[in-house]
Design a protein around this nucleic acid. Structure first.
Length: 464
RNA sequence: GGCGUCGUCGCCAAGUGGUAAGGCAAGGGUCUGCAAAACCCUUAUUCGCGGGUUCGAAUCUCGCCGACGCCUCCA
């Protein structure tokens, strides 16, 4: 199995620290308003990776954190007049529901900054002790970037280059302009905790280093997140963790590309946001997942009506493979049956080959389409349900690995009886060849979200 | 300006040295009263542009052009 590693910029063989165990940490969200579909992309990418690792026999310890102490949370809480942790807790619950709606498996654990303060303080004290950090005159504690020889190796930057950037201002309390805050002194009335350096709260990056240590230990296998986190967030995490433990922090760094809305990255600061809830009110979760699967997780992903419509059709096409055989099917010849069987086997082999190559989901999806076509052909040729069942089960197994539900849409409960009645009446009308009336029933039902499909065995229907 | 990713059919997108997957859209056909769905057939001598390496390159290399991301909070 191969995996692209940001830190080496190479696709490498995947080898874990411990056999059959993957320790995986994914940067979650800062909880202060509704999560958007860009967050969904990231969550889906790592959910797919996790599911595949599980499928390949690994136990996966999957940690996703919540940043619940931060400037933005504090500002928003002040606007709304609620305590910051109350606000963040509300959005933590909200995000958990969003993820569930997207069929993202729950993390093994979801640490929060506010519950990790003692360890964070211990971590910072340890860095000071080793000369990697210092308490400044203003009550902040900073990490000393010049104390880390490797600083910049994830993002491929050199300290000299970074200083050349025009936007960097030398903070009066910092020894070096690139030094970053581990601990921020509290402003008047702000949420804070006691520490050896006075009242304050953790800086952004230290939380992830501390929570990693608490949840997974000194060394992990995969650290994931959006590629916008490479610098400074992940760069700083590496600096902190490796200076603290003296060991390589994460073996593989995995970063997803950004969702593009109108040619630009979707982000809070640009304001071009579609929330997950807004998306799910219009399309099913499988559509978002299919959009991600059809692309490359590391590349930018186009999010617009055209790509979403295509994803929706792809989902419908996959669902077609799960339709049952006709009850009156005459059965398939033995050689056709074995063709289907070998199609299922080669689909599985192609699926694994694609996914083993740095989670090539587009290739994996192609394998599923091939299998769907073979199943549909067999059904068209008169296969019985017993004959297509094994291939459908293989197909189910593989689509589950990708987290696709492929469920039929649900309409109003209790409508079934009435719809069936209409279909029965229409059947009588059709016997009398009253086509105009028959088509009227079909068209009106379509408008109401019910699609009829006539076949030799009668009429079937589904919500659309 | 620095660092990085990328540019393959109308659209989305695999393929990373051996002669272009898959889906959508489009056209033709089978089935159907007509549809829908499904199935069959057709649709890139060519991979941003220009050199180079090689028996052979979309795949390696150099240059150029273009897009996007990061360098400031961000999945």
């Amino acid at each position: 199995m191969k995996i692209y590693n940001t830190i080496t910029r190479k696709t490498e063989e995947f080898v874990t620290h411990e056999p059959n165990l993957v320790k995986m940490y994914v940067c979650g969200v800062t909880v202060y308003n509704d999560a958007h579909v860009g967050h969904a992309m990231s969550a889906l990418v790592f959910d797919i990776i996790r599911r595949y690792l599980m499928y390949r026999g690994y136990e996966v310890k999957y940690v996703m954190n919540y940043t619940d102490v931060d400037d933005k949370i504090i500002n928003r809480a002040n606007e709304l007049g609620v305590p910051p942790l109350e606000l963040s807790n509300r959005y933590i619950e909200d995000y958990a529901r969003d993820l569930q709606s997207l069929n993202v498996l729950p993390a093994t654990s979801n640490p929060q900054v506010s519950k990790t303060i003692p360890l964070i303080i211990q971590f910072i004290a340890g860095l000071i002790e080793k000369g990697h950090a210092y308490a400044a005159s203003n009550g902040d504690v900073y990490f000393r970037v010049t104390s880390d020889e490797d600083y910049g190796r994830l993002s491929g930057r050199k300290l000299e280059d970074m200083q050349a950037g025009a936007r960097i201002e030398v903070g009066e309390a910092k020894d070096h302009p690139m030094d970053f805050a581990l601990w921020k002194a509290a402003k008047e009335g702000e949420i804070s905790w006691d520490s050896p350096w006075g009242k304050g709260r953790p800086g952004w990056h230290i939380e992830c280093s501390a929570m990693n240590l608490a949840e997974l230990g000194e060394q992990i296998d995969i650290h994931g997140g959006g590629n916008d986190l490479i610098f400074p967030h992940h760069e700083n995490e590496i600096a902190q963790s490796e200076c603290y433990t003296g060991k390589e922090f994460s073996r593989y760094w995995v970063h997803n590309g950004m969702l593009q809305l109108g040619g630009e990255k979707m982000s809070k600061s640009l304001g071009n946001i579609v929330s997950i809830k807004e998306f799910l009110s219009k399309r099913e979760a499988d559509v978002m997942r299919m959009l991600v699967l059809n692309g490359t997780y590391r590349a930018p992903l186009l999010f617009n009506n055209d790509t979403l419509d295509a994803a929706e059709k792809n989902v419908a096409r996959l669902k077609s493979g799960l339709k049952p055989a006709s009850p009156s099917a005459k059965g398939l010849a033995p050689e056709a049956e074995s063709t289907l069987k070998s199609a299922a086997e080669s689909a599985k082999a192609n699926f694994i080959e694609a996914m083993d190559n740095d989670f090539n989901t587009a290739g994996a999806i192609a394998a599923l389409f091939e299998l769907v076509k073979m199943i549909n052909t067999a059904r068209d040729n008169g296969a019985t349900q017993a004959q297509i069942q094994p291939a459908q089960e293989s197909f189910r197994e593989l689509s589950n690995v990708l987290g696709l539900k492929l469920e039929d849409k649900q309409g109003s409960e209790g409508a079934d009886a009435f719809i069936n009645l209409l279909i029965e009446v229409r059947g009588e009308v059709r016997k009398q060849k009253l086509w105009a009336m028959s088509d009227l029933i079909r068209d009106r039902l379509k408008e109401l979200g019910v699609t009829l499909e006539d076949s030799k065995d009668g009429t079937t229907w589904k919500w659309s």
